[in-house]
């Protein structure tokens, strides 16, 4: 059996639960199924508000599912298992803590805040290039730096699975590209499995072993795309034929590109 199995997961928010004035239940997630192996990076790609974030929270055990099953590492997820890392869209650091104390927060909760944890925190900060900012406060850092701290915080307890909810969505394009490379490097060094929610087609393809494309709400898995680009990838990877081809398949699956032959597409672009 695969490391992670998501089977027919469905989530219906009851009336008023999600949007306080809605009178009807909202089907956020209709039917989601996919598998992933240990150490794989899987991107969940879909239009915004399509329920992929809901799926991520269900996998984390933060919210309940209406039906279906989620199994991670042989355990059925019904509540938080306590050994995931979670990165949110906003850095969500604690303004009252220094950078290093933010990173150590999970270790405090897990009552494991010892010397080794401190050493690891500093090591992680070094890995993301923030050694000199260990004792700074979050507000002294740029958005990209804050998100790097959040990444360290998610990794401090050596989770087997990293859940990332559009973590680079709020960053500018250049910072985003840098963060993509950083994430790939970190994944290589930690060997963690990653579920990565994004609505950027190229980000999804650049990062992952596999892209799960979701349809509009209520979300279903529209297509599963294997990305066979070899790791380690670099920004050059984006300009290969295989990358473009993957982008085309993903765009079609998302419905932003009408299916058709390549020749037609080219004439369309030229005119």
């Amino acid at each position: 059996m695969a490391f992670g199995t998501i089977r027919n997961v469905r989530k219906v928010f009851s009336a008023g639960e999600l949007i306080s004035r809605s009178r009807e239940p909202v089907v956020a997630l209709d039917d989601a199924s996919f598998d992933f192996e240990q150490g794989q990076l899987v991107a969940l790609l879909g239009p915004s508000g399509c329920g992929k974030t809901t799926l991520l929270r269900i996998v984390a055990g933060l919210i309940s599912k209406t039906s279906g099953s989620v199994n991670i590492g042989g355990r059925e997820v019904t509540e938080p298992l306590g050994d995931y890392g979670f990165v949110f869209q906003s850095p969500s650091l604690m303004p009252w803590r220094s950078v290093v104390d933010n990173v150590l927060f999970p270790m405090e909760i897990l009552k494991n805040n010892n010397k080794a944890a401190r050493a690891r925190a500093n090591e992680l900060l070094g890995l993301v290039g923030l050694s000199n900012f260990a004792h700074a406060r979050p507000h002294q850092l740029s958005g990209g730096m804050q998100q790097r701290v959040a990444l360290c915080r998610a990794l401090i307890h050596q989770p087997k699975l990293l859940l990332m909810d559009e973590p680079f969505g709020a960053l500018d394009e250049l910072t985003r590209l840098e963060m993509n490379d950083l994430l790939l490097r970190i994944r290589r060094e930690t060997g963690a499995s990653v579920l990565f929610v994004t609505h950027s087609i190229s980000e999804a393809i650049y990062l992952s072993d596999k892209v799960i494309v979701f349809s509009r709400r209520p979300a279903r898995v529209a297509r599963e795309i294997q990305i066979d680009l070899p790791y380690p990838r670099s920004q050059r990877t984006r300009f290969t034929a295989a990358f473009t081809e993957a982008e085309r398949i993903a765009s079609e699956a998302l419905g932003v590109l009408p299916p058709g032959s390549e020749a037609e597409t080219e004439t369309g672009a030229a005119s």
């Binding site: 933060l62 949110f88 604690m94 009252w96």
Partner: peptide, 28 residues
């Protein structure tokens, strides 16, 4: 912030830990 509560939740923090380490400092 909801994210901080979720973060604590995802680490299975006890209600006391949530209060002392997240809620109260945020409310201070």
């Amino acid at each position: 912030p909801r994210e901080l509560l979720e973060l604590a939740d995802s680490l299975r923090a006890s209600p006391m830990q949530v209060f002392l380490k997240v809620q109260f400092p945020a409310a201070l």
